[in-house]
Each structure stands twice: as C-alpha cells, then as structure tokens.
Design a protein around this nucleic acid. Structure first.
Lengths: 244, 244
DNA sequence: GTAATAGTGTCTTTAAGACACTATGTA
DNA sequence: TACATAGTGTCTTAAAGACACTATTAC
C-alpha cells in the first residue's frame, strides 16, 4: 500500500475513484410478515422497479453517519432504532451508469413507529417480503405488493435484501435485535410473533417462553395489555443496557 | 438517491469521491496461537507501526477481486484458501492524509501453506495475536513479536483485527471455516487444536469428537499420521462440497 | 358460566461436559 | 513390555420439543 498511498498523498485525484453510497434495508414486521421500505424509481435505469432508499456518502461523513442521515431524510422520523452495517457490494457492473460501491445498512423499526413516519417522498412504500425458504439460513427473496403481485427490484437490491434477512435470522438468538421490532412494552406473544415472522416458522410456546426468560434480557412490568376480550397477557420490557 | 445520481450520471466527478481500499487480515494458527500477516510501515504516518497489507480498489475492479489480487501480490502464493469480506471501515479521520474508506477482508491459510510463501516484501511478518479475553465473543486485541514484545498497530487496524477474530469465533461452529486453517488431511487432534487456538480455551475431547463427527462435514481416509513415537491418529478430510 | 388466551408442569429427546476406561501404535 | 496418545462408554446435566393441563380475564 505504501507507494501508491504516498503518491496519492500528493495528488488525491491522480486516478479515478469510485462513488460510494449507503443503501438502507429498513425492515419491520407487519401482519406477521417481514416488510421493507422500498422506493419506486422514476428514472432509468430500472425505471418503475423498487429500490432501496440510499444516498451518497459525503466526503467528510462517516458511514454510520451517512446511513443515519438517509434514514432520517427518507422517513422524516427522529434518529433512533436499530442501525447496523450489513455488507458492502462493489461489483463493477452493479450500476450500469458508473462505478458505485454501496455500503448496505439495515435498520429496524417497530411498525407502530414506522407507520407514524411522514414518509417524506410519496414514492416510498412498505412492501412485504417473501423469503423462499424458512429456517435459520435465508434463501432467495422477492417483494410483493399489497395485492400479492410480484414487484421487480432494481440493481442488486434483491441480493442485498436476501443478505439482510440472513443476517437478521442469524442474530436472532444471540442478540437483542428482535426487540428493535417491538414497542417498549410487549407481551411474550408479541415477541414470539416477531421471531416467527423473521424465521418463517412457528415455534413451540413453552420452550420459547423458557428460553426468553432464561436469557435474562427482559423483565415483567406488572402491567397487562388492554383492550382484549380475553385474559390479558403481562407486558414485558427489555432491561436497560442489553443493547447488542 | 434519484436526483443526486441523475446529476452524477452526467458528471461523475462533480463532487469529490473518497478513496476506497481493501485491507487484508490474513490469519493462520502457529504454535497453538492465532497469528496474522502484518507489514511494517516505512513512511509516515504511523512509521514503524504494523499495518494490514492492503491496496486500492481499481475503478473497474470488484471488491473480492481486489482482495484476491492483494493477497496474491503480497504473499506470492497462488490464489486459493478462504477469503471473505469482513466489514467496511469509513471513519473520516481513520487516515490522517485523506479520506479513505477501507473494505476489510479476512483470509485464512494453513501454516503449512503460508510458510512456503515467498513473502514478496521483506517488511511482511507473521505476528502472534493476543486476544484479551477467551470465549465466544472477542475483546480487544494486540500484536506481539516473536520475543513477546508489544507491537503498535497503525490506523484503526487493531479494531479491524478485533473484528476479524470476533467473526472467526462466531462462525466456528456453524461453518467449515476452521478447515481453511488445516492441510487437506488432518487428525481430529489437529482440528481441536485449531478450535482451541481460535477460541482461546481448551475443549473437552470426547464432546469435541462427537460434535465434529455428528456434523457430517468430515470423513475418515483410513490412513494414519506418520512419524509419531506413539499410536498414530487417523487422518480425516473435509467432504467435498461442504464450502461455507 | 363460557370463551379464549395466558401461563405452567412434566415427560421425552438431544446434546454437551466430565471422567474413566480400553485400544493400539512406537520403541 | 512400557509409554503415550488414540479413541470410546457412560453417567450426569442442561436445554429444547411436545402436549396436556391449570389459571385468569372479558363478556
């Protein structure tokens, strides 16, 4: 690295640099299924396809910082929630216009928060994801509109979405990532529903409860859910300082 | 993304782009400990510190491709072995000269292969890593020379090394990553030693054997190791098509 | 009381840890 | 035969799946 860097030190633009963007996989759980926020493209290339919201990384801007800026700019929501770098995609042909390397991030928000989002741009839409096979590891992914019709994804964004689901599934049992998809107070049933949506399988209730309580991540609040027509469940919360 | 991209489409250099490099965490197991290939810097900044070998990503070059090129260029070895993207580091201040975003890769080679490497540059050296705490998750990391003296790491390379060890530990039990650190034929004791070096703990022999044989990744060859002064162990090999 | 879900007790199965034991090659 | 390590048998412990059961609230 030494020689090239040394030269570049004197002339940073001596040879052409790629563009660098961040793309955001903003996911939530809606009606027991994973969904992501996608943007309909108005221009070529991939006109009318769905794309991940994204933006260029400023020359003096950190990557996490850029991802957060894009998140706030697109949703109109205040910063917060889960945001984690996913993977960097850099195939020279991934964008037909010019060389763009994109650092993909994934963000998680509970539906309760996301549905309050002003959604600054009207070409943004929450789209249901269909993952080809259930279980721990994720297979291919596709997007479906409300009616169930298939939506085409722009660029390599299907691959990015697939990587995001795989990561989400992989981190489910050793991190507190699932709680980013729930409001501050939730029932154990809610938590199980989130796990089931992510994994695409149904889980055993007693075993699930035991596991969650044994991990020591959550605590009961003594309060119960309201508005049920049956026995209300206890509300739990994530204990403080259980992040990551 | 649309407007900015559209503009950029007409003038790709309208605003300054960061430089993009790949940095390589090339690790192996030597004397029961993790070691990485580091390069002593001859110039400022961080003169005389150890740095990860790296290089710029060409404007028409993929990221994996760039990592492989750097690996071959530095070691003089033919392509092969485990190579996987690790994480992208992009703090604007990580390099004091100019904005450089680096996509870190980690590569694994068995010591038998790596010690045959021509090591093109004489400032390259295999350095023992010291991980602050054992177990699944990785803590802080430091590098030690043969004699045990502490070596300073350049840039954010200690953080990158720490991330690599964490990833390695995390993938150990659900992927075939450990076999990238062993020759084609190996004994179960060799395999256990690799696991112990990576995790920094000692493992129970019968349980380890059971687990490995139950995973179905390996098969016995019927051959035995040579040159022992005691009962020779059976040689195993990774079954074909068990990659990743 | 009835309906409906919350929440638990317990049996079985599976996998890991511990530890002692047997097996087998070299010298 | 002695030695050193290979390799196994088995007991215990921990955790997950299955499934039926009890508990509690709204109505």
């Amino acid at each position: 690295m030494t020689e090239a860097e040394f030269l570049q030190d004197y002339d940073p633009q001596a040879f052409p640099h790629p563009s660098v963007t961040v793309d955001l996989v903003l996911m939530t759980v809606r009606d027991g299924k994973l969904a992501a926020l996608l943007q309909q493209r108005g221009d070529h290339p991939f006109k009318d396809h769905r794309a991940l919201p994204g933006g260029f990384v400023g020359i003096d801007e950190g990557l996490d910082e850029a991802a957060e800026r894009v998140l706030v700019a697109k949703t109109g929501l205040p910063a917060g929630g889960w945001l984690e770098q996913l993977y960097t995609f850099g195939d020279p042909a991934r964008d037909p216009r010019t060389r763009i390397i994109t650092v993909a991030y994934f963000a998680l928000l509970p539906l309760e928060v996301l549905s309050r989002a002003p959604l600054v741009r009207d070409d943004l839409e929450l789209v249901e994801l269909e993952v080809s096979w259930p279980g721990e590891r994720g297979g291919a992914i596709s997007a479906r509109a409300g009616g169930g019709t298939h939506l085409d994804l722009a660029f390599d964004h299907a691959e990015i979405l697939g990587t995001a689901v795989k990561r989400l599934r992989g981190k489910l049992d050793y991190s507190t990532i699932a709680f980013a998809l729930l409001p501050e107070r939730f029932t154990l049933r809610d938590l199980q529903a989130v796990h089931e949506a992510i994994l695409g399988v149904s889980l055993n209730k007693p075993a699930f409860r035991r596991r969650m309580l044994d991990k020591g991540w959550i605590e009961g609040t003594g309060e119960r859910e309201l508005g049920t027509s049956y026995r209300p469940a206890e509300l739990y919360r994530l204990k403080p300082n259980q992040g990551d």
